[in-house]
Amino acid sequence: MLRRTSEQGASEIANRNFNLRGSNAMTRVCVSGIGVEIPEASISNEELVESFNSWVDAENPKRAEKGLPALAKSDAGFIEHASGIKRRHVYEREGILDPSRMAPRIPARADDDLSVMAEFGVAAAKKALDHAGVSARDVDLVICASAHHQRPYPAIAIEIQKAIGAVGAGFDMGLGCSSALAGLHVAANLVRAGAHRRVLVVTPELITAHLNFRDRQTHFIFGDASVAVLIEALGASEERPGRFEIVDTGSWTQFSNNIRTNFGFLSRVAQEDPSYMEIEGNLIKQNGNKVFKDVTIAGHQFIVDFLAEHGHTPETMRRFWLHQANARMNAMILKLAFGAEVGHDRAPMVLDRLGNTAAAGAIIALKENHEDMKPGEHGLLCAFGAGYSIGGALMRMM
């Protein structure tokens, strides 16, 4: 049985604090705004495979001279069959398809200029605030929750806070592809406990800048996108039609090396010549088959257990907005939960055209597939990531 880090412990502490202040109930919380920013440029499977295979053709003679085994080529049809991905949107297309480079060209910016990641986050943040009808001045905490961060400090969240004109505080956090759900978990409980009134969770995912396009296992998986959600307090009996009340959030982690990146400052000093850092070998890598099996089992168990804690079953959910990593994996998780195949209406997919946008994917699926829901209907937002990590949010349409 999988065990998650439940909100129960946090609720008991927060309830004690509220009781000390004379309150008998926790503050209700809602998602009042959602923003999505998707880059215009895109790359098809066929384009990506042509570039990869050209590099393989140039590389294999060199490997043969060294007595190394030949590299296998990639295949567009297999990519779609294995993952469900047909194309992906990218922040910068130039350089990715060049076999001599195979990385996007994103020029460095001066320290006093808005960073690339913050700029990407700001675009989604402004859309979330517009959707909520809230001024940035009314936001008292910004969390930048992403799988990858451009730098350790100053925090990207603080830079976003300044750029949009928010007040209060900001901090960064990361939990792989579960980062947005982890951020939502923290934000919802901070608001619920009364520590903050409005929290903006921003998830700018520039994954292609961290991707090794020469790795056949991962070169096709990821795309870029930026999302943001605004979490607000609700009055005791307040209803906001068209918005979601967050019933509960949860998270679960279990250590695994099957999805890993070693890109960090210790990589430099681990080498004989610390003035030169070997980057490619420290980028994203994963054991795809093992990840598929492990996460399918863990994801299914988390969903069933999390819903059961609140008297729900998969059948009582109007919609599932799951992590957009692999269409086959999501289908298997839901088949285990329902005992039958589940279609797009119940569990919408966006990765066929966007690729795996890391922590942004489930939020995109939510933004694009919720306006038809009726008051009182429930949905589950759930993401799975490296770690392993899982985050979930049970939500009710108001």
Rank of each mutant, 00 (worst) to 15 (best):
I85F: 07
V291Y: 03
F18Q: 10
A180E: 13
R3Y: 07
T261G: 03
A145L: 05
R198T: 05
E239H: 13
E65C: 09
P241V: 07
I158R: 10
G33S: 09
Q254F: 02
L230K: 11
E47C: 07
E47H: 11
L200E: 01
K126M: 08
L211Y: 01
I246H: 10
G121D: 06
F265N: 08
F292T: 10
G121A: 09
L334T: 03
A123W: 11
K86C: 04
F302L: 13
E238H: 03
L181H: 00
T357H: 10
R319Q: 14
Q8L: 15
M317P: 00
N289D: 12
N19E: 14
E12V: 05
N356I: 13
M329G: 01
A58L: 15
E368T: 04
D273Q: 12
A125H: 14
L175T: 05
G379W: 07
G9F: 07
H344M: 15
I85H: 03
D372K: 11
Q8C: 06
A270P: 00
V202C: 05
V304E: 06
F338G: 00
A236D: 14
V186A: 15
V31E: 07
L200W: 14
H131T: 00
W55V: 06
H89P: 04
D57P: 09
A233N: 02
A72W: 10
T218I: 15
N189A: 07
E232Q: 15
R328W: 14
V201Y: 12
R198N: 13
A358W: 04
R109F: 05
K126G: 00
H149T: 01
E47L: 08
L200A: 05
P107Y: 10
I143D: 04
Y276P: 01
L334S: 01
K62Q: 14
R105E: 14
I160T: 02
E50V: 06
S74L: 11
G168T: 12
A359Y: 05
F384R: 03
E315H: 11
A228W: 11
L68I: 06
A193F: 02
G339K: 10
A270T: 15
G379I: 01
D294G: 07
N24E: 15
E377F: 11
Q217W: 06
A327V: 07
N15H: 04
A108N: 14
E50S: 03
E238K: 04
N17W: 13
F263N: 12
G121Q: 04
A82I: 01
A155R: 01
K62I: 12
V247S: 08
G77D: 12
S11W: 05
A58S: 13
L354S: 02
L211N: 04
G9P: 07
E232G: 11
K293E: 12
D294M: 13
I221R: 02
G95V: 08
Y276M: 04
M373V: 08
G392I: 12
I297E: 15
I85W: 01
I156F: 03
V227G: 01
R151G: 13
T27W: 10
V269F: 15
I79N: 03
L380S: 07
N330S: 02
G355R: 09
A383R: 00
G22D: 11
N15P: 06
T203M: 09
E59D: 04
H89T: 11
I333A: 02
